[in-house]
């Protein structure tokens, strides 16, 4: 697969490490949330046959964590963002 890195352009997916569902961005505050909330955060993930937002790490590249929107059926990648930007934007809207 080719991931179109927002800064570096097309890069082979072999350079990346896959983590999983991008909901891991929304980590609860450990001083507020309890076990139940953290359990949901860590384990309850969607696993769609279709469009999916995923975290990929450009380990053999610029070490950016990316949010990749990928269709798990066709492997079509429709959007790639820096996870840092996504995280910052989500914090602003909270």
């Amino acid at each position: 697969m080719i991931i179109h890195h927002p800064i570096l352009g097309p890069r082979d997916a072999q350079e990346f490490v896959y983590l999983g569902d991008a909901n891991l961005i929304d980590r609860p505050d450990g001083m507020v949330a309890g076990v139940e909330v953290f359990h949901d955060y860590l384990y309850n993930r969607t696993n769609p046959a279709g469009e999916h937002q995923e975290l990929w790490y450009h380990e053999q590249g610029d070490r950016s964590w990316l949010v990749v929107t990928r269709n798990t059926v066709t492997h079509e990648i429709t959007r790639v963002e820096l996870a840092r930007d996504v995280a910052r934007a989500r914090r602003r809207t909270k």
Binding site: L19, L24, I25, R27, L55, Y57, R63, S64, W65, L82, A83, R84, A87, R88, R91
Partner: peptide, 9 residues
């Protein structure tokens, strides 16, 4: 890097 970029940018 995950913590730095994704959790606490």
């Amino acid at each position: 890097e995950f913590c730095r970029q994704v959790l606490w940018p």
